[in-house]
Nucleic acid binder design. Structure first.
Lengths: 273, 273
DNA sequence: TTGCTCCTCACGTCACGTGAGGTGGC
DNA sequence: TTGCTCCTCACGTCACGTGAGGTGGC
């Protein structure tokens, strides 16, 4: 036991504002050791200073209050470290995203209207092994990596070989309502027995307007925009999921600038390209 | 003029959600080119795709909507670039802060209770040149640098020499209500004629409990906490601003790890140290 | 005793997301 | 014609900040 402090003294010692301390009391993140039942005055203990400082550090790192609570009440050190590490990972990937947003903003401002090459193509039906799920746009990135990882492990185990580049189907709702169906697939010779999330799936034939996106996916919306503009102005869009074909992806090249992604927008063929 | 699009099509092309587009309409950030007065349907134009993409980039970089508006409506390129540059500067300093928060969190978790050395000292009144202002905690960092910059320029012009290390006085309210009086000063031999914000000021004598904080100011709250705890447990705190004395600061050493700051907490002297 | 410290509502902020409940267009 | 797309409220979220209006303690 240390010494009792008013909220103001405690605020000065921790550089947490009085409003913040009251808020932390209300949400149960940091409770005063004592409360005068008549006046409602909160009293803190000098022993709580280190806890308050740790809380401030986590909040400076934008860790949500609920997760800070979880860290503080972790039953043991490994559990606590895991929570912290996962937050630092999130921070790092956020940082990566910020950096690529800066790069892509710079290139957008430097050469505003990069021309786009669009090809019309009739793709035949494709025999594949696939994993599908209904997800949100936020989850897409990590879900995508995991799903392709699982497909790859399945193929390694069964000794199956891909007969073409990986691909994915994304329903419009994924972008519209932030929640929609996504499918990733690898073309294979023969149907397989389902295993875990992996199943056989025939990707239907389609008429597509196709553009190629070079580089990381942080600015794939640029290609989507250009392709969508092209389709709106030169072709007849039809319902159906957008297709992505991963000619070169994170599984082929560590350097993201080398990635190549074909984007296929379903159309009703009016002219031959 | 391009081609008219429904909000859903436009959403797919820009990867901005429909809800987001409606929100941007409401706040006047991105207005549809056309609205059906009966149905209320919004129609966008393919020409607006690049603008939407730029907006998305800025929002990805956490630029407030109002500022994005300002960028888009900037009268000329230099004005626009200045707005962008200032935002990137903010981003960068935020990044620095995050990095130092990570470092300080790590050290907090590694050696939790660094012992602290506290000294009781009676400081005499000090003749100084000073700049004072009522500011918020957020502004403190930049105000501090500017104010000392101005003091330094004044001294250079007038050929005045410092007779001791720089210092500052910070009223409790600065931490309590996020808004309070701050004074920074440089000890000098003689009073001077006021000039701009610079004025002569006598820093009153005081009894202080003093601890030294080593390194950058990102974790100065640790020393505040330890010193505050010490005072609460071993001495009698009295009203009055906290004092900081900058033995080594950003004006003396580029490497922040070498900085030394004395923190003086006003006390009523009960024992001799 | 003054005035500073502390209290509790209630509401505001920011940038959307989440339904509910309903209409319009191909 | 079905069902998908679009609409407008109204409210929720997150982590506090901002007053208003009032009381308590040295």
């Amino acid at each position: 036991m240390g010494t009792s402090l008013t909220i103001g003294d405690f605020s000065r010692m921790t550089h947490l504002s009085v409003k913040t301390l009251r808020h932390y009391h209300q949400v149960g993140l940091l409770e005063p050791t004592d409360i005068n039942p008549e006046s409602g005055y909160r009293y803190y203990d000098t022993d709580q200073v280190p806890t308050a400082q740790v809380i401030r550090r986590f909040r400076d790192l934008a860790m949500p209050v609920e997760q800070v609570k979880a860290v503080l009440s972790a039953p043991n050190l490994p559990a606590r470290n895991a929570l912290i590490a996962s937050h630092l990972d999130r921070l790092e990937s956020q940082l990566d995203q910020t950096q690529s947003a800066v790069a892509s903003l710079r290139s957008l401002l430097e050469h505003p209207d990069a021309p786009i090459r669009v090809e019309h193509r009739a793709t035949p039906a494709l025999s594949t092994i696939a994993i599908g799920a209904t997800i949100t746009q936020d989850e897409l990135g990590s879900w995508w990596s995991e799903a392709f990882g699982e497909l790859q492990r399945f193929m390694d185990q069964e000794g199956i070989r891909a007969t073409g580049p990986k691909g994915g189907l994304y329903r419009n709702e994924l972008f519209l309502h932030e929640n929609g169906e996504a499918v990733v697939y690898v073309p294979v010779e023969e149907p397989v027995v389902p295993h875990g999330r992996v199943e056989s799936r025939v990707i239907p034939a389609a008429e597509l307007a196709i553009a190629t996106h070079d580089g990381p996916h942080g600015d794939i919306d640029l290609t989507y925009g250009a392709l969508g503009t092209y389709v709106a102005e030169h072709a007849l869009a039809v319902e159906g999921p957008v297709r992505e074909t991963y000619l070169v992806s994170e599984f082929d090249a560590a350097d993201a600038t080398g990635w190549r992604t074909e984007i296929g927008w379903p159309i009703f063929r009016t002219t031959s390209s």
